[in-house]
Simulated scan of single mutants.
Amino acid sequence: METSQRIARSQPLATTAMHGRVDAMKARGEEVIDFSIAISHFQAPESVLQAVRDGLKQPSLPYTTVGGDAGIRARLAAKVSSENGIAASASEIIVTNGAKQALYQALYVMADPGDAVIIFKPHWPAYVTTCKLLGLEPVLVDLPATVSAEFLDSLPPAKILIVNNPHNPTGGVLRADEIERIAAWLKRTGTRAIVDESYEKLIFEGVHTSLAARPDWQQIGIVSIYSASQSYAMMGWRAGFAVAPSNIVTAMETLQGPITAAAPMLIQLALASAFESGEPMAMLHEYRQRRDMVLDMVHGLPWMTMRCPASGPYLWGDVSALTMDTKQFAEELLNQYAVALMPGDALGAPGFIRIGYISDDIATLRRGVEAIIRYGNARYRAR
């Protein structure tokens, strides 16, 4: 049976495709170390687990309105008001089945086919893939070390700017002055913004500032996306939400209604409890130790440079001294050493590799990094 032309023109998301390959290998009984995505070895916070237990004791878990239960939306509005400085009401919150759904729906209702969307690279692959699915035109621009007014003024006209802060994969965190410049540019050009703040809780150095933390965020047209997946070790829960002007939320509900309707009430309870559970300090402490261990292991390699990320569950390595074809790097590493990682080509940056360092135990992390080093050293000597 033939498929539609539009899906025939589409490609699977690179990150999920690699993870799917790893799962298939494991299902066949093969031992694989998976650094291709970040899956925390931590459990969700106890308050989240308790919220689920309590939810299961309720007489029923009903359908809610598409955008989410009114009480849950109010709790999430209180979260972004107190923690992010975003003055939002419950009507400006929509609960979604993870951040990807929020991204898809925001792009769908904010732009029409053919509209340009600026995406900084390296980038999370879903930004580009989602734009292409919707017939939008992704415009890839190298993310500079500092977002200056001159850089912003050099950007081409676009309907939407996607901002990822904290940034996947580099781990960069935008400074408050950079956020102000972006807001001024948005106002000056009339460009709207989608801001992915999924890693807001995973910051080692610096301070996270929300672009929408300003009184005129609705007039500028800013949609902010949040996820419990990484911040609270809830990858499989598919729990996320977006903050947007009320007319955008209404439009996103119109789209979400016939697709998934509301997120499950049990997940909504878990989501609100996660964001009320405080800072994940124990998790951050261990992540920092893991990050520093890997940085120590790769320090001084002649073929890789890896900077210390200020945030996030990933390490971003420059292997351009060895190869610009990181797809081949990733394939050979998987085939020869049973270690999976994400090639930079998939994130718009050939010559780089992304390592998710938060899965499994420390011994497995060390063993996987040692395999990467052995593989790279062998290729470097054979040049």
Rank of each mutant, 00 (worst) to 15 (best):
340 A>R: 01
285 H>Y: 15
98 G>T: 06
375 Y>R: 01
321 A>K: 14
176 A>G: 07
358 I>T: 11
367 R>I: 06
57 K>E: 08
230 Q>G: 14
117 V>F: 00
214 R>K: 12
74 A>N: 12
128 V>D: 03
35 F>K: 08
279 E>A: 14
21 R>G: 07
178 E>L: 05
235 M>G: 09
332 E>T: 12
138 P>N: 10
117 V>K: 05
203 I>C: 00
326 T>L: 04
145 A>K: 10
96 T>V: 10
200 E>S: 08
146 T>A: 10
144 P>K: 01
136 L>D: 03
225 I>G: 00
208 H>R: 04
309 P>G: 02
277 S>F: 00
49 L>C: 04
363 A>P: 06
216 D>E: 13
92 E>W: 00
328 Q>F: 08
313 P>E: 01
295 L>P: 11
287 Y>A: 15
202 L>Q: 00
119 I>V: 15
146 T>Y: 15
314 Y>P: 02
73 R>L: 04
104 Y>D: 15
118 I>S: 03
308 C>D: 15
38 A>Y: 12
55 G>R: 04
17 A>M: 13
183 A>E: 10
186 L>N: 12
347 L>C: 07
161 L>G: 08
339 V>S: 01
206 G>C: 01
261 A>R: 14
352 F>L: 05
380 Y>R: 09
303 W>Q: 06
25 M>I: 00
155 L>T: 07
183 A>K: 13
142 D>S: 11
187 K>W: 12
1 M>I: 14
194 I>N: 03
50 Q>S: 07
149 A>Q: 14
272 A>L: 05
150 E>D: 13
194 I>E: 00
146 T>M: 10
282 A>Y: 01
254 T>H: 11
110 M>R: 05
275 F>S: 00
219 Q>F: 02
272 A>G: 03
52 V>H: 07
175 R>M: 13
38 A>Q: 06
97 N>C: 14
134 L>T: 00
21 R>Y: 08
322 L>E: 10
296 D>Y: 10
255 L>K: 13
280 P>K: 02
283 M>P: 03
247 N>K: 06
295 L>I: 12
258 P>M: 15
334 L>I: 08
68 G>W: 01
175 R>C: 11
127 Y>F: 08
1 M>L: 15
318 D>A: 06
22 V>R: 04
138 P>R: 14
229 S>W: 09
64 T>G: 01
19 H>M: 09
114 G>L: 03
165 N>E: 03
363 A>F: 07
32 V>C: 07
202 L>H: 00
290 R>H: 06
60 S>R: 08
279 E>R: 12
217 W>R: 14
133 L>G: 06
84 N>I: 09
283 M>H: 07
192 R>H: 07
381 R>A: 13
323 T>R: 12
215 P>E: 12
162 I>A: 03
24 A>I: 05
164 N>D: 12
49 L>P: 03
290 R>G: 10
277 S>V: 01
287 Y>V: 15
61 L>V: 02
146 T>V: 13
288 R>L: 15
378 A>M: 04
91 S>D: 13
272 A>V: 01
59 P>L: 02
320 S>M: 05
48 V>E: 05
162 I>T: 07
142 D>Y: 02
11 Q>F: 15
318 D>G: 06
